[in-house]
C-alpha cells in the first residue's frame, strides 16, 4: 500500500499571532513551526501501517524551503520519503490542486490529511483534493483498518460516531482519535540521523486559478473586563447570567 500524508507547516499552538505589511501578512517573527497536530496524528497512523502492513509512507508539503525542517521531522518520525511542492500556498484550492497532481503521479492508495490546519482553519484541502482526484473521501476519520482494497473506518459525527465501509483509493481527513496522544512519537537520534539521507524531492507547482485571496487580517477587539463574583453570592451569578448576559 502506498500512503501519502499531507503535512501542513503551522505555527506552534502557543504562538503569538501578529501581522505585518499593513496587516496583509502573517508575522513569522519569533514563531516556532510544527507539523500541524491533525497531520501528526495521521502520520503516526501511517507509520503504523508501514510497520504492521508493509506500507510505504511519503509525506508532502506545499511550501517554500523554510518548511523543510518540518518535512525532515516527519522523515525522522519514520516516513520513507518526502516531497516539497515549491510554492507559497495562496488558498486551499491551490494546495488541493498541487496535491491532486502528486497523487496522480504517485498513484497512492491511501491519502491522509489533517481535517483542518491550525493556521487558516480552512478545513477544505482534504475534500477538495479528493474531489479533484476522484478518490473516495472520508472526513473526521477517527479509526481506519485496511484489508486488501477494503476499508472499514469510523467517523466522528455531531453527537456520536458512525462506522462506514468503502474501498481504496481513499482520502481521509483526520484528527485525534486515529491514534491516541500517547502514540505520538518524538524522533529519536537514529531517526534524526537517517532522516538526513532520506529523499526529499522538490517539484515545481502546477497552475491553479486564484479562486480566493486573503486580503487582510484583523485581531479581535479587546474584551471587556471580567466581573468577579464571591463564592458566597451565587445568586449574583445567576442574576447576571439571566438579566445581563441573558444566557439562562
Amino acid at each position: 500500500m502506498k500512503i501519502l500524508v499531507c503535512i501542513s507547516h503551522v505555527p506552534d499552538t502557543t504562538s503569538k499571532i501578529n501581522f505585518t505589511n499593513n496587516d496583509t501578512e502573517f508575522d513569522t517573527n519569533g514563531v516556532q513551526y510544527v507539523i500541524n497536530p491533525n497531520d501528526e496524528f495521521g502520520l503516526t497512523r501511517a507509520i503504523w501501517f508501514q510497520e504492521q502492513q508493509g506500507a510505504t509512507v511519503t509525506v508532502v508539503n506545499v511550501g517554500g524551503p523554510e518548511t523543510e525542517p518540518t518535512l525532515r521531522k516527519a522523515l525522522a518520525i519514520g516516513a520513507n520519503e518526502a516531497i516539497r511542492i515549491n510554492a507559497t500556498p495562496t488558498d486551499g484550492f491551490f494546495v488541493a490542486k498541487q496535491l491532486a497532481e502528486v497523487i496522480k503521479n504517485g498513484a497512492y492508495d491511501l491519502v491522509i490529511a489533517g481535517k483542518e490546519s491550525l493556521d487558516y482553519n480552512g478545513g477544505m484541502v482534504p475534500g477538495m483534493t479528493a474531489a479533484l482526484s476522484g478518490y473516495n473521501f472520508l472526513n473526521s476519520c477517527i479509526d481506519i483498518a485496511v484489508d486488501g482494497n477494503n476499508v472499514k473506518a469510523v467517523r466522528e459525527i455531531d453527537g456520536g460516531k458512525e462506522t462506514v465501509s468503502t474501498s481504496l483509493p481513499l482520502i481521509i481527513g483526520t484528527q485525534k482519535g486515529i491514534v491516541e496522544e500517547k502514540d505520538l512519537r518524538i524522533p529519536n537520534m537514529r531517526g534524526i540521523m537517517t532522516a538526513r539521507t532520506k529523499p526529499l524531492n522538490i517539484t515545481e507547482a502546477v497552475d491553479a486559478p486564484a479562486n480566493t485571496k486573503a486580503v487582510k487580517f484583523e485581531k479581535p477587539a479587546p474584551k471587556s473586563a471580567i466581573k468577579m463574583i464571591s463564592p458566597d453570592n451565587l445568586d449574583e451569578l445567576i442574576d447576571l447570567l439571566h438579566n445581563e448576559a441573558k444566557v439562562i
Binding site: 493556521d119 487558516y120 479562486n211 480566493t212 485571496k213 486573503a214 487580517f217 484583523e218 485581531k219 479581535p220
Partner: peptide, 16 residues
Amino acid sequence: RNAFSNKAFNITEINT
C-alpha cells in the same frame, strides 16, 4: 472569517 484558532480574523475575497 475566523482564522488562527479564533486568535485573528482573515478577510477573504472570493473571485469566482
